[in-house]
Design a protein around this nucleic acid. Sequence first.
DNA 1: GTGAAAATGAACTGATGAGTTCAATTGCCT
DNA 2: AGGCAATTGAACTCATCAGTTCATTTTCAC
Lengths: 213, 213
Amino acid sequence: MSVGDTEKSTSDRGRLDKRRAIVEAALRVFARVGYAQASLDMIAAEAGVAKPTIYNHLGSKENLFRHVMTETAARANGKTMEVLESFPGEADGLRPGLEDVAGKLVACYTDEQSQAVRRLLYAEAVRFPDLFDQVRASGPDQFIEALAGRLARLANAGHLRIEDPVRAANQFIALVYEELPTLSTFGSRPLDSREAEKVAVAGVDTFLRAFGS
Amino acid sequence: MSVGDTEKSTSDRGRLDKRRAIVEAALRVFARVGYAQASLDMIAAEAGVAKPTIYNHLGSKENLFRHVMTETAARANGKTMEVLESFPGEADGLRPGLEDVAGKLVACYTDEQSQAVRRLLYAEAVRFPDLFDQVRASGPDQFIEALAGRLARLANAGHLRIEDPVRAANQFIALVYEELPTLSTFGSRPLDSREAEKVAVAGVDTFLRAFGS
DNA sequence: GTGAAAATGAACTGATGAGTTCAATTGCCT
DNA sequence: AGGCAATTGAACTCATCAGTTCATTTTCAC
């Protein structure tokens, strides 16, 4: 029996790229109707694939869900981490620099796939608590650490007055995202991006009122 | 006549407040396993009631869920609004007053039933979008308005420097709750209340750094 | 007491959906 | 062209569960 065939990358036997099609279709279907309501027949139809093919590649509905979540979350988290590369390092242009970062973070947050994963993780946190932890540990937790490092550097250079960088980092994102989740009904409806941008700028303003030097 | 025996004795038939027992049991079961995974047999067993009795009182699973959500949310929202009665009206003792309010809000937020409803609302936002809207309109939206009013009064009296009270209210709760949701995996696991308290105090501190006069 | 209303348990229906099987087909490699 | 593996469709098994039915039992108001 083909047991742990972790990746089939070694031999690209005459397979079409069914696997990717399945995962992408699954994300769409899961996002649209939720985990419990998504049937494998739906997903197979959406992917343009026969049902047994799904089992060939991914084994079970639960396994498929895990793959979809971790893969999509990894992609979304990667984009979020990239935002920090444009983080301001000098006091010069600090406010516009932070506003730029905040705007990009909001864009990442409101990205369709990103919202879909987040919503599904919340929705299924009872059924898949380990998945929730795993994604958080590899994403948000690392991001907060990285952001805290950037803030600490600014504070160290005297450009900000911050005692607890991790707390400041959490408060920064709390201020920037503010009521984004409720505004979009947790991603289940579109969000006015101009409104989101204003929230982000206001968040930066409050952050600087509190921590600017 | 076993006194203090809350469990139904073998002969507990007939009419009593079955309806309340059903709704309470349903909340527990829904919170424990989610809407889709909760069967009416489970709920009936948990309530100590026969399955047809549930249909007598509440008609259908969907209807039962709606009742459970709206009733529990109304109770939780009521408690949250009560917190505002102890909102400080004078500059005198402003910080401890706000810290007190923040602590109580965190307590409301982390209340077991409150978290259960919130988690279920998020989880089922795709299936019951109207329910989400209804609860939010009757709860959080009104709360933000009320909080904004209190803040505006303080600002008007010169005790705070606030231009946009609604935004300030949103930022206040964003700072106070901060990462509570992720800390508790959206309510699916217990939360260290000392840690939550520290987050709240830090949130008030940042709020006052930004808006204090 | 008596009788109607409410509650019970147990069995039943119908639908849905995960996961499997398999013979037939397709695409790709040498 | 031959061959191998992936793919396909369709039918099938098995389990779960919402919602119903009904004959029986219990409670309570009178």
